[in-house]
Amino acid sequence: MRISEIATVLAWHDALNSSDIDTLLAVSSDDIDLAGTEGAAQGLSALREWATTAGLTLVPGRMFMHDGVIVIEEQATWASKPNEPRTVATAFRVVHDQVTAVFRHDTLESALEATDLSEKDLVTDI
């Protein structure tokens, strides 16, 4: 297990949740791929736009990891619906300590299926 990949993804979460856009961009690659239920985008300007307008907090839970791909089960809360948190999952690709791809899924199962990860990839010790 590569601790630096997990640390990068956790720093990404911390920056997003604290609206620290400079740090969020610093831990993301220039050509980052972003995708979710509402579409896809690429690049730091797209990430900046999304991070400043989404009104989203993602609290990390269980993590699954293999070969630079990390899936994190998250508690998602939108500013527009603060009393309606949902459990979602996001798949991250980390290369050279930078997030290169972020793909949000509505369920952990769909994120694991999309990345070919499984319960055997559960991170149990950090």
Rank of each mutant, 00 (worst) to 15 (best):
T90G: 14
E49C: 08
L108A: 02
P82R: 10
S18H: 10
L108K: 02
A26F: 03
R48C: 04
T100Y: 00
A15N: 10
A26W: 03
W78G: 10
M65W: 07
E73T: 05
V94D: 06
E74G: 12
M63H: 08
L25T: 04
A101F: 05
S18M: 02
L122A: 09
R62S: 06
T77W: 10
R48K: 15
D121G: 01
R104L: 13
A91Q: 11
S118Q: 05
E73V: 07
W12F: 14
V69M: 06
I72P: 11
T115C: 05
N83P: 05
E109F: 01
D33V: 11
A11P: 09
P85F: 04
V88H: 08
D116S: 13
Q75K: 15
F64W: 04
E113D: 11
A54G: 10
S118T: 13
A79H: 12
I3Q: 00
V9K: 12
E74H: 15
T115W: 01
R48I: 02
R2E: 12
E73C: 06
G39F: 02
L34T: 04
L122W: 03
R93E: 08
D20F: 07
T107M: 04
D30K: 00
L47P: 04
V123P: 02
A41V: 07
D67C: 02
P82S: 07
I126Y: 14
D14P: 06
H66V: 02
L25V: 10
D33M: 09
A76K: 12
P60V: 09
V123Q: 01
A76E: 15
D30N: 00
A15Q: 09
T8E: 12
A91N: 09
D31N: 10
I32R: 01
S28C: 02
L25P: 08
G55N: 09
A26R: 14
D20E: 03
P85T: 05
R2G: 05
D125W: 06
T107Y: 03
L25Q: 03
T53V: 12
Q42R: 09
A51L: 05
S118E: 02
E74N: 15
G39H: 00
W50M: 13
F103Q: 11
L112I: 00
E109H: 05
I6P: 09
T57C: 15
E119N: 10
A51G: 08
S19H: 12
T124D: 06
P82T: 06
I70D: 11
D125V: 08
H96A: 14
S110C: 02
V88K: 13
A41F: 06
P82D: 03
